[in-house]
């Protein structure tokens, strides 16, 4: 820790000690982050295992977090390892295989890996890893071209359900992948049958946006971060988003919830430890990450990512993951069942 920060650190540890005492009395000591004794809020080194290539979503998240940790002095050294392949499967397999010598290594995971695990597309399920903490989330956005006749989500969902031939939906993931599921979620919540969406798969959000702009497709389902720039430029209109509340960057875009459509969905990104990680280790890293998300250095990095803070750790993260998994599992089941019914 740089000497300049020492007074600050001491003050914080005093405060934390008081807080710790209070929390101990409450009997939930294991949940609190404190900067004293055996759980210091900084660490010598942290290694990121990124399941995708340089420049992708997992990679940019890892590098943003690593940079904020280094600049805020919470971690002295950070390093990154890109192990792409099999949609994340290669990195998960490697992490499990070498778990014994992966101290101070965290794996970057996201909703997409839960979806692939549930779909049986990964040789090893992501729930074999130990959840540490989530940091950011992107929310789903339902988008049309600026000159589209569709004005709101109600018109959009009716048009897609009743006239699928003229209203194709683009997304930046495979069929059954995240962008497809988000749209199905919204459609089901709006009272339309599952598994009937005319979904066209593109390799990435940018390609899907191109198809919307060229008029190949009429609706786009993708992450808010993928279309924020295009919406800013007036090329597209975002009709609804899947966040619990409106986003500060898009104050005029309604959430599905406030439109009376019970569909909330967060595409979170977070960190996982190797199987067999001790509870102490897990808490130590989680606390470092949580402390990091309150630094101004992180704010700079986060705004570059154009993502929303989504910090969960400890039992809260465990519970969130369980719910998230259940939601996705149920959704994927009903989409499959709906598709079957449609083809019979």
């Amino acid at each position: 820790m740089p000497s300049i920060l020492k007074p600050l650190f001491l003050r914080r540890s005093c405060f934390c000690a008081v807080l710790l005492a209070y929390v101990c009395l409450q009997g939930v000591a294991a949940e609190a982050c404190d900067a004293t004794g055996d759980t210091p809020a900084d660490m010598a080194r942290l290694h990121f295992l990124v399941p995708g290539g340089a420049g992708g979503g997992w990679d940019s998240t890892a590098r943003a977090v690593g940079e904020a940790l280094r600049r805020s002095g919470l971690a002295a050294r950070v390093s990154y390892e890109n192990r792409s392949g099999g949609g994340g499967g290669v990195a998960i397999a490697h992490f499990i295989e070498t778990a014994g010598r992966q101290q101070n290594t965290v794996f970057v995971g996201s909703t997409a890996l839960v979806i692939r695990s549930l779909g049986g597309l990964l040789p090893q399920d992501i729930d074999e890893l130990v959840p540490i903490a989530s940091v950011v989330a992107d929310y789903g956005a339902l988008v049309v071209r600026a000159d589209s006749p569709l004005q709101d989500f109600a018109q959009l969902s009716t048009a897609v359900a009743e006239n699928p031939r003229q209203n194709k939906v683009a997304g930046g993931s495979v069929r059954g992948g995240m962008d497809h599921l988000v749209l199905e979620l919204a459609m089901i919540a709006a009272g339309h049958p599952a598994g009937r969406v005319p979904y066209v798969a593109y390799d990435a959000g940018g390609q899907a946006l191109t198809s919307l702009l060229s008029g190949e497709t009429q609706v786009l389902s993708t992450g808010v971060s993928e279309v924020a720039a295009a919406s800013d430029q007036g090329q597209v209109r975002i009709l609804a988003i899947t966040s619990p509340e409106r986003l500060p960057e898009l104050p005029e875009v309604p959430t599905l919830l406030e439109l009376g459509v019970d569909a909330e969905f967060a595409n979170w990104r977070g960190f996982f430890g190797p199987p067999g990680m001790t509870e102490d280790e897990r808490k130590r890293i989680a606390c470092v990450i949580e402390t990091m998300t309150r630094t101004p250095e992180w704010e700079t990095q986060r705004s570059r990512l154009a993502l929303t803070n989504f910090v969960r750790r400890g039992t809260a993260f465990d519970a969130f993951l369980r719910d998230n998994r259940r939601q996705l599992d149920r959704l994927m089941d009903s989409v499959r069942a709906g598709k079957k019914a449609a083809t019979q």
Binding site: A54, G55, S60, A204, G206, Q207, L209, T210, L213, A228, A229, A230, D232, Q233, G234, Q235, R304, L305, A306
Partner: peptide, 28 residues
């Protein structure tokens, strides 16, 4: 001019531009 990537390389550059706080598009 459109803010859409034409290749893997320009896709990475698009991400870079957005992180500089620039929104590429028709009015860039």
């Amino acid at each position: 001019t459109l803010g859409v990537p034409g290749s893997a390389t320009t896709a990475v550059m698009l991400g870079a531009l957005i992180s500089y706080g620039i929104n590429p598009g028709p009015s860039l």
